[in-house]
């Protein structure tokens, strides 16, 4: 049996908003450790992995590992009906049923909404995600997640919004990270310098560079990842020319959301 409770729907609402526009289905793995979610986009360019440890929930009972594929668009629709302070209960029975029940209960007026979701196939996930060696990454950038979101918005507004294939080039050189994109009639570059931690100790931009690195990514993916900002104040971007880039948001003490994305390479 699986029975979970969260006294505030916000966390789960934010998780769904952070993944549902790019990923249509996800695999949810519940175990004694917590919830591990994985999803891959249809072009197989990006993968998202989420961990919410059991401690993230107000009540967590999972006496047997349970893996289920769920449609994220349907879930996001249901969660948009939930208020931030609704109490969420997630329940699944033994193997014979292939549905999971999400219940939203309003603490103020006692209204209860019940959604049953059927399991779906997930095309390729879950995958085993190794911890790639640190030495493989040429550069790591840590910055406030709101700043990263602002950068993505600026780049998107400059690039032709109708073009799904706008490319952003992220390059790291010494104590600077540059975001570059090309619009219809010009280019746009946003330069971020490493900030002095003394001035704003809570919102530093930190750049660790082993070697110069410059990689091209799809802007619409990056834009979508930036929605992780509702889950964490900081984002860490790890760049390597040999591995998928990682955009990581730590969720308080209870987990993380990591987006893996392949850079575009010259043909």
């Amino acid at each position: 049996i699986l029975e979970l409770r969260l006294v505030q729907a916000t966390l789960f609402k934010n998780v769904l908003e952070a993944i549902s526009d790019l990923f249509s289905k996800a695999n949810f793995d519940f175990s004694g450790t917590g919830l591990e979610l994985q999803a891959m986009d249809t072009s197989h360019v990006a993968l998202v992995a989420l961990l919410l440890r059991a401690e993230a929930f107000n009540h967590y009972l999972c006496d047997r590992d349970l893996s289920m594929g769920l449609n994220l668009a349907d879930m996001a629709k249901a969660f948009r009906c939930a208020n931030n302070d609704d109490i969420i209960t997630i329940k699944a029975e033994e193997d014979w049923s292939d549905t999971v029940t999400f219940t939203f209960e309003s603490p103020e007026d006692g209204e209860i909404s019940i959604f049953d979701f059927d399991f779906v196939g997930t095309n390729g996930v879950p995958l085993e995600i190794p911890e790639f060696p640190e030495s493989e990454y040429q550069a790591k950038v840590r910055m406030p997640s709101a700043k990263f979101m602002r950068i993505c918005k600026k780049l998107s507004s400059f690039g032709d919004s109708g073009d799904r294939d706008t490319v952003v080039i992220i390059s790291v050189d010494k104590e600077c990270v540059n975001f570059f994109t090309r619009g219809k009639t010009g280019t746009s570059t946003i330069v971020c310098r490493q900030t002095q931690t003394v001035d704003k100790p809570k919102e530093p931009t930190l750049i660790e560079m082993k070697e110069q690195v410059s990689l091209a990514f799809d802007l619409r993916y990056m834009n979508s990842f930036s929605k992780g900002s509702t889950l964490s104040d900081q984002v860490t971007i790890s760049l390597s020319s040999n591995l998928p880039a990682v955009f990581e948001y730590k969720i308080a003490e209870t987990g993380y959301i990591r987006y893996y994305m392949l850079p575009r390479i010259e043909e």
Binding site: H44, L262, R264, I265
Partner: peptide, 14 residues
């Protein structure tokens, strides 16, 4: 032009 590989090649099937 540019192309992209398949991210699955970096991970193993569970």
């Amino acid at each position: 032009g540019t192309k992209q590989g398949n991210i699955m090649s970096f991970f193993k099937k569970v």
